[in-house]
């Protein structure tokens, strides 16, 4: 068991292997994830019951919750990759961070935007400085810093190391940010909006929500593979294996 895992890890570090496998996996992941998203969106938008309190606007939940949850998961996975890169110097981890950062930033943006659009008709405000929203905003800023850092180094390896350092410092700091905003918030506005207040969500609403979360995670897997492939094709342009592969296609 351990040996197969170890083999898998070593294979994962190899660009040609990854390029070959990802080419096979990507079509399936793409079709599956997009059809899941379409199904869950249609289900959520048209067939799930209307919320008694919020009316139809609550249907934004089918886009908001998956986006926010996946944006955090992407950041944590990136910090694991950063540790792997700093400790074992695995090049693939650098590729992973670089390719996933824009995707994470995009989904954090979708989460913030959909939250604002949801909040306006429901609670009468686009934005509240509460702990969740502020820490998501800070997460977005970290993503931007990571993306901005990519271009400031001439050598690829230094850029990857710098980005890994930032990612790790960010993941150490994020809980502190969350906690401190929590404390700060309690002084200014007690009992503010709690967006996930509806703890007893009915199963007819929950099922499409779970489906859409699954769809978004698969979609991130799909686009992640795709952009890692793109990144590899940029980095390895002059390598022999890449020339062989692209002539074969």
């Amino acid at each position: 068991m351990f040996q197969t895992l170890k083999n898998f890890y070593h294979k994962l570090g190899s660009f040609p292997w990854f390029y070959k496998i990802s080419g096979k996996v990507i079509p399936f992941a793409g079709v599956l994830s997009i059809s899941l998203i379409v199904i869950s969106s249609i289900w959520g938008l048209f067939f799930s019951p209307t919320d008694a309190v919020q009316g139809d606007v609550y249907r934004i939940i089918y886009f908001h919750v998956p986006a926010v949850s996946v944006s955090q998961v992407i950041y944590y996975s990136m910090s694991i990759a950063a540790a792997v890169f700093l400790i074992w110097r695995m090049k693939m981890a650098g590729v992973y961070i670089k390719s996933l950062a824009p995707i994470g930033a995009a989904f954090t943006f979708i989460g913030l935007m959909s939250g604002a659009i949801w909040g306006q008709p429901t609670w009468g405000t686009w934005w509240v400085w509460d702990a969740r929203l502020t820490s998501t905003l800070v997460l977005f800023l970290f993503y931007l810093a990571i993306i901005g850092m990519q271009s400031t180094f001439a050598s690829r390896k230094s850029a990857d190391t710098a980005v890994s350092i930032i990612t790790l410092v960010g993941v150490v700091n994020l809980p502190i940010v969350k906690k401190s905003v929590d404390w700060w918030n309690t002084l200014h506005q007690p009992a503010s909006i709690s967006i996930t207040g509806e703890s007893s969500i009915s199963s007819e609403m929950l099922l499409p929500l779970l489906l859409s979360i699954l769809g978004i995670y698969l979609f991130v897997f799909f686009t992640g593979l795709l952009s890692m492939r793109a990144e590899i094709s940029t980095r390895e342009q002059n390598k022999d294996w890449f020339k062989k592969v692209s002539n074969y296609n």
Binding site: V57, R59, I60, F63, I110, I117, W118, P121
Partner: peptide
């Protein structure tokens, strides 16, 4: 037509 929902859907 709910403008809030559809703006989120289209942007996403």
């Amino acid at each position: 037509f709910n403008i809030h929902i559809w703006s989120v859907v289209s942007a996403t």
